[in-house]
Design a protein around this nucleic acid. Structure first.
Lengths: 120, 120
DNA sequence: ATTTCGTACAACCATTTGGTTGTAGGTTAC
DNA sequence: GTAACCTACAACCAAATGGTTGTACGAAAT
């Protein structure tokens, strides 16, 4: 299987949206430590089983977790590669910022290249 | 000023939710490269000025950017520390995974002697 | 002074989200 | 077989999201 290292906008949307909820982040940390069935996960939260199931589904659509049947249980485990790629994306933002100092030198040297307004 | 290195659930919610939109991520990368006024930013997108203004407000509430008045413009610049802390959070998930075979309890028992790793 | 520019904000709308309950199907246990 | 358990999914609801237009106000340019 070919593993692209870059994320599409949609994939990134789903990943960050999935991580933008404390319950889902908690689910992620739990299954990072140890994979668990959906109902085992549900036992930890003060909400219905169906609600937890939905949260898992959101994480699954974001490829942050996968499910695997085992008997009558569905075992949830973390998908590290996705988490890693999200981390790399944020790190690339940091790199972008660190490269900003160089750009400022250029600006000072050149003082606003002509035609700066139009493009893109 | 004391800079907590950990994020509350609410802060983390806001950060990831803010990043879960392609337009807002693009705004972040633009102001990471170079700070820009809100209207300059708005010029880059096929949506109303008010919509862009709202996106900036979402990023601002997440502390991913700050605004600074300059003349009649409001200049948006990136808040690296927040981006960095989000990146660190994801990295801590990765560390969690790498250490998952070990007993976490031992780590917790030993960690953080009072005053140990406070300010940054 | 008047106009123009950049911003702020309210009101409105369609869609999505995060929760609920209820129903149904497949597995394991008795 | 029957009961109990785990999961799936639909229907429903309140609240949040992402967009719009319109109005208003301060700063700058004329």
């Amino acid at each position: 299987m070919v593993v692209r290292n870059e994320l599409t906008d949609d994939e990134t949307d789903r990943i960050f949206r999935a991580l933008a909820d404390a319950t889902r982040r908690d689910i992620v940390t739990r299954v990072l430590r140890q994979e668990q069935s959906v109902s085992a996960l549900a036992g930890h939260y003060a909400m219905s089983f169906a609600a937890v199931q939905k949260h898992v589904a959101v994480l699954e659509r974001a490829s942050l977790v996968t499910k695997q049947r085992r008997g009558r249980e569905q075992v949830v485990h973390a998908e590290m590669s996705t988490l890693h790629r999200a981390a790399r994306l944020l790190e690339s933002y940091e790199e972008l910022w660190h490269g900003r100092a160089r750009r400022i030198d250029d600006l000072l040297a050149e003082e606003v290249p002509p035609g700066g307004r139009g493009a893109e």
